[in-house]
Design a protein around this nucleic acid. Structure first.
Lengths: 343, 343
DNA sequence: TTGTATGCGTTATCAA
DNA sequence: TTGATAACGCATACAA
């Protein structure tokens, strides 16, 4: 079944069938009804390839993420896909892994599939050295590129981020105000967002003057990270003499590892140790005691990203190049901010 | 840049350029090199729409899942996408939600996009009443349909499942052998797989003869389920007089809720209460004590599914219509099977 | 309001 | 080994 068949069955031209298909105004109600009936009767569906060939678009947006099984990225992909679909766009998914080479290759593939735009999900796409971002900038010459949780300043690249720096600053500051004097910051990434978080920690420490006795930021390589591995690493740090009565982390999984360590070492949370996670994953509610963590408003980020993209498609003049959301601290049982604040 | 441009630049016909593009054998080495050089020089990429129009395929497979932010489905989507890509197919993702109407709509969209096959991820796609599966069977008339973790017997539909029934049977049997006499089975789904699990529980109970005093299967509606909600529900059950010294669940989140309940009620795990989850999610390692659970070999399922699909594409005669994998029980700290088994 | 004719960029068939 | 050309199915500019 193609447009010619419908044309023949109804006795009108293919142009008219096409007009009905595309809701063109200039079709008489009678003709429209006749065509619609035939379309229904023969179960005709327009061929998207032919349409794509003419219009040079298939209303498809590429979503690139490092690993869609990572709970953070999985949620992001979900939100974005939903929003795209609401706007009548389909999602072509590519899980690129974390290697630059594969990311670039994946981008090439996206462009070769003639997607209408590419959405880069996760701050790991923005590299510190500029040349590593070249493939993204080049892509932006062809289609709009949206970055979720990373900043890359370049024509036709639009960014939506969460203010992770301020969030960690605030958490750290709360720890200090509550009298925590030996702070450990644990992180497992060097992405754009990870850097912002570390920056937030350092800034808060700096601004605290002499209230702090010890502070230490420790990087954990995140290949196949499990809570038990984190637990071991924290135990090693303690053994080496690193002192801490407050641990701030860049990810819930690290924080859960700390909680496990504390339990095994007989350290009482929150009395002797404060712990804070990041991302507000399921696991923050499953661990015991439950984790104080940060909700980074991922859904807002994703919705905003797609809504911005639609404006770009519509050639809207008022498209923000960068949009920043604030995070929200969720206090559970591994800290006691309120009591200290009240005192 | 199109094939005519390259043809012109190199002085050969478009047919020859096409032959080079498609690695056709009948091209002289000299011509091939010349064309390849021009392609490289001008950065030419074949137009997939035009190609699709002629060949009626864009080497794209549709992945339908209810909710790609669900950790189980997210992992499945990830594995499948990886495997598809290895085989040079792209993945069109559609998160359909759990409503039949939207699933059918999503299927229509997939077909209208002319995907080469559709993969249904998650046993929730196979409904108990046959007419509800009609849209899937109809789709199978157009493209191969692959079902991950569900069985639907119909031409051109291929299924890969985990033997969830046996897994739950074995878990239940272990509980009984360890002297657990009051069993509670908690489940939050009525999908194909959920039914199999419940069946496993019931069979094990039945086969145990008079070793059991009480057994009760309780369904929890899973809209926005949180561990705390589960905890409340379990507390209510206990209050109502439901007795249990062993709780088997269809999903880790339920089991974690039970663990939370036990802690709040002062019930000792595993001494006074055995608990088993299902899926081996992160949360099973994060809760305290850590959860005995079932690894359902999702990666195997997904790999097999794609590999079967590739055989279907290749018109291989030896394509299995159904493939079954066994699950693996992972014992952690909410049960003590081994000790009992040894005695 | 409707119809005619053409372009979109490939691949494949057939002829040379 | 290569070239000319039809076919794929639609949208649209232009004509009526």
């Amino acid at each position: 079944m193609n447009i010619y068949d419908i044309s023949e069955k109804t006795g009108v031209s293919t142009a008219t069938v096409s007009r009905v298909l595309n809701r063109s105004a200039n079709v008489s109600e009678k003709t429209r009804a006749k065509v619609l009936a035939a379309i229904e009767e023969y179960g005709y569906t327009p061929n998207v390839f032919a349409r794509g060939l003419g219009l040079n678009t298939m209303k498809t947006v590429g979503i690139m993420c490092a690993d869609s099984s990572d709970p953070y990225l999985a949620r992001a992909v979900y939100y974005i896909e939903q929003e795209l679909r609401k706007n009548n766009y389909d999602a072509l998914l590519s899980c690129t892994g974390y290697k630059l080479e594969n990311k670039a290759k994946s981008m090439t593939m996206m462009l070769s599939k003639r997607v209408d735009a590419v959405i880069l999900v996760g701050s790991n796409y923005v590299e510190a050295t500029d040349d590593k971002n070249d493939y993204i900038k080049k892509a932006a010459a062809t289609v709009p590129v949206m970055v979720v949780n990373g900043i890359l300043r370049h024509p036709n690249i639009y960014c939506t981020v969460c203010d992770d720096k301020s969030a960690i600053y605030e958490v750290t500051d709360s720890f200090i105000r509550c009298g925590r004097k030996n702070l450990l910051y644990l992180y497992n990434s060097t992405s754009f967002s990870a850097k912002a978080k570390l920056d937030g920690f350092r800034s808060a420490v700096k601004d605290s003057g002499s209230l702090i006795e010890n502070e230490y930021a420790h990087y954990i390589n995140s290949n196949n990270l499990t809570v038990h591995k984190v637990q071991e690493i924290v135990a090693e740090l303690a053994e080496k003499g690193v002192k801490f009565d407050g641990v701030i982390t860049s990810d819930d999984i690290l924080a859960v590892g700390v909680v496990k360590y504390a339990k095994s070492a007989g350290i009482k949370i929150p009395d002797e140790l404060y712990v804070a996670g990041y991302n507000n994953f399921d696991i923050s509610e499953c661990c015991d005691p439950e984790l104080t963590t940060v909700n980074n408003k991922l859904e807002n980020l994703c919705n905003q990203c797609v809504s911005t993209l639609m404006k770009v498609f519509a050639d809207d003049r008022s498209v923000p190049k960068e949009t920043v959301f604030s995070a929200e601290i969720i206090e559970r049982d591994t800290t006691e901010f309120k009591i200290k604040k009240g005192s």
